[in-house]
């Protein structure tokens, strides 16, 4: 079953086709099956972040169509998109995006709260998820009182709490040291294997990308290459580096 399917997405910044305009995305077609763990890689300025923003309904494409979980999000209004995001999509951001005024528990719960779920259900749900990611014991702490890794785990928990159709991750290891990066990527693998979550992650970190099952490389706003893991992470990591070398990514970055 296809969870995400896009056709010919383009995004032009700064007016249509005039001299000052920038073509950030130039006809991207991609599809993600349920249970997949897909990575999107590419050099800086290749359009990774634009793609993610458009896929998640935060930004609007200039042309093209996006279908998530069988629904076309390009025709939705902003409010419909917001509702769709909190019910069907999960997010993990580089800067965690936790609210400082809420405890970790409340942060994790937020999508459910916005959806006015029953409080007993919420308690149960967050207990399950926060325990899975080993942050249940610090649930009443505030974000500024815990480590970056713990914050990211809370953000990961939040992305899963509403049982989304797909989780979007934007450079989830970007702010973390290699140990925490490793831990977070294991979480993603855990999400993917144990909960069978569908994940689409944008990263420029080859190490983080090596945890994915499939990687799409984009350059100059176009999909230029695609590789699939054969199961061995070390071997996949090397292939990623090779691909990056070919398309001109940052090879020496480990």
């Amino acid at each position: 079953m296809k969870v995400l399917n896009t056709k010919n997405i383009t995004k032009v910044y700064g007016g249509k086709e005039d001299a000052g305009s920038t073509r950030a995305l130039d006809g991207v077609d991609l599809s993600v099956e349920a249970g997949e763990f897909v990575g999107v890689m590419g050099p800086s300025g290749s359009g990774k972040s634009t793609l993610l923003n458009i896929l998640s309904g935060i930004d609007i494409p200039t042309t093209g169509n996006i279908e998530i979980d069988g629904r076309s999000i390009t025709t939705m209004s902003k409010d419909e998109l917001a509702l769709f995001r909190r019910q069907k999509l999960g997010f993990v951001f580089q800067e965690f995006n936790l609210l400082d005024s809420l405890t970790l528990k409340e942060n994790v719960m937020l999508p459910l709260i916005l959806d006015k779920k029953d409080s007993a259900y919420m308690e149960e749900k967050i207990k399950e998820i926060m325990s899975l990611f080993e942050i249940y014991h610090i649930k009443d702490k505030y974000p500024h009182g815990v480590s970056g890794g713990q914050q990211q785990r809370a953000a990961v928990s939040r992305s899963l709490v509403s049982d989304p159709a797909i989780v979007f991750a934007d450079e989830p290891t970007g702010n973390l040291d290699s140990k925490s990066s490793n831990a977070v990527m294991r979480l993603f693998t855990k999400m993917n294997t144990e909960r069978n979550s569908t994940i689409l992650m944008v990263t420029h970190d080859a190490f983080a990308a090596s945890f994915c099952k499939r990687i799409i490389f984009i350059k100059d706003g176009k999909v230029c290459m695609e590789i699939v893991s054969k199961g061995d992470r070390k071997e996949f990591f090397d292939r990623i580096l090779d691909c990056l070398a070919v398309i001109g990514g940052e090879k020496n970055e480990i």
């Binding site: 917001a82 509702l83 909190r86 937020l110 916005l114």
Partner: peptide
């Protein structure tokens, strides 16, 4: 900044 975060999570304008 705060409402940007909430926007991404899915807070509707009315809320």
């Amino acid at each position: 900044q705060k409402y940007d975060k909430l926007y991404k999570i899915g807070l509707v304008k009315k809320e």
